[in-house]
């Protein structure tokens, strides 16, 4: 629905030139030619479609609002899902302008597919944390408890970055986890922990703050991993300049402020 609407708008932009852009900007409730924007230029107006990893749900929602405040002609559309799902969608030709991944691997696969419009830049780092239901009813104290078969243990499944990082972390710590379920993505895992249907799971530090009903238990730095989040524009981008503008914004002081406020590390 959104996509088809967007295609319609794109078509009208081509037919009507600047006036079409103006109209589409009006559609997105931004003022056009009213003087609210200091530089009412075509390259700053229009829509930018951002495919972002689901662990970026809260931060990129804020990021999109801040970007639209900065460039009133712009309209950010977010598509949030597991990084590998997004990767498959991009490789299948989805109309995306920017890709923000939760790991290097998926970005590399998109690059290999020839879909990257710019070199990827690291915009955030993240580390893992144990997540337990509020109040820690299972009495989890550390990483070694993941091997306790009396506890209900959940991870992200191996195709999601949080699952792969968890595997690395467990290998470093020398713990063989007694896993009860491999959830599709970090959101699904957090839902079950929040509902107290699982005793413990491995998620990102940033998820602990953002999720109600979930407490965090620190994973020591010597076994923890540092996940790096790369971002890049895509060749499929309709408006390459606007896409680059968004990537620059994420890397700017203001964008980095949003990331660090949510608990992400700065590269």
């Amino acid at each position: 629905m959104v996509v088809s609407l967007r295609l319609l708008v794109e078509e009208w932009k081509v037919r009507l030139g600047w006036w079409g852009v103006c109209a589409s900007a009006l559609l997105s409730l931004a003022a056009c030619g009213s003087g609210a924007s200091p530089e009412p230029s075509g390259q700053f107006a229009g829509e930018v479609v951002v495919f972002a990893a689901s662990s970026l749900t809260n931060t990129f929602t804020l990021m999109a609002e801040a970007f639209e405040d900065e460039y009133p002609g712009a309209d950010v559309q977010l598509n949030l899902a597991g990084s590998s799902t997004l990767r498959e969608q991009i490789l299948a030709g989805a109309p995306a302008d920017v890709f923000a991944s939760a790991n290097e691997e998926n970005m590399k696969r998109v690059d290999e597919g020839g879909e990257l419009g710019s070199d990827p830049a690291t915009f955030a780092t993240n580390t893992l944390s144990l997540a337990v239901p509020a109040g820690n009813p299972g009495g989890v104290s550390g990483v070694e408890d993941l091997g306790n078969s009396n506890l209900l243990v959940g991870l992200c499944n191996e195709s999601a970055p949080c699952g792969q990082f968890a595997e690395q972390m467990l290998a470093t710590a020398g713990v063989e986890a007694s896993v009860d379920t491999n959830e599709a993505d970090v959101r699904a895992l957090l839902t079950k922990i929040g509902a107290d249907e699982l005793d413990v799971g491995v998620v990102y530090v940033t998820d602990i703050e953002a999720t109600a009903g979930v407490d965090g238990i620190e994973i020591p730095a010597d076994v923890n991993i540092v996940a790096t989040y790369p971002i890049a524009t895509l060749t499929a981008a309709q408006n390459q300049e606007l896409a680059e503008l968004f990537v620059d914004f994420v890397l700017s002081t203001e964008g980095q402020g949003i990331m660090t406020a949510a608990g992400f590390g700065s590269p």
Partner: peptide
């Protein structure tokens, strides 16, 4: 199944 029973090879 995914939501209720989870996902674990050999079990669910």
């Amino acid at each position: 199944t995914a939501t209720f029973a989870g996902n674990l090879q050999g079990r669910t």
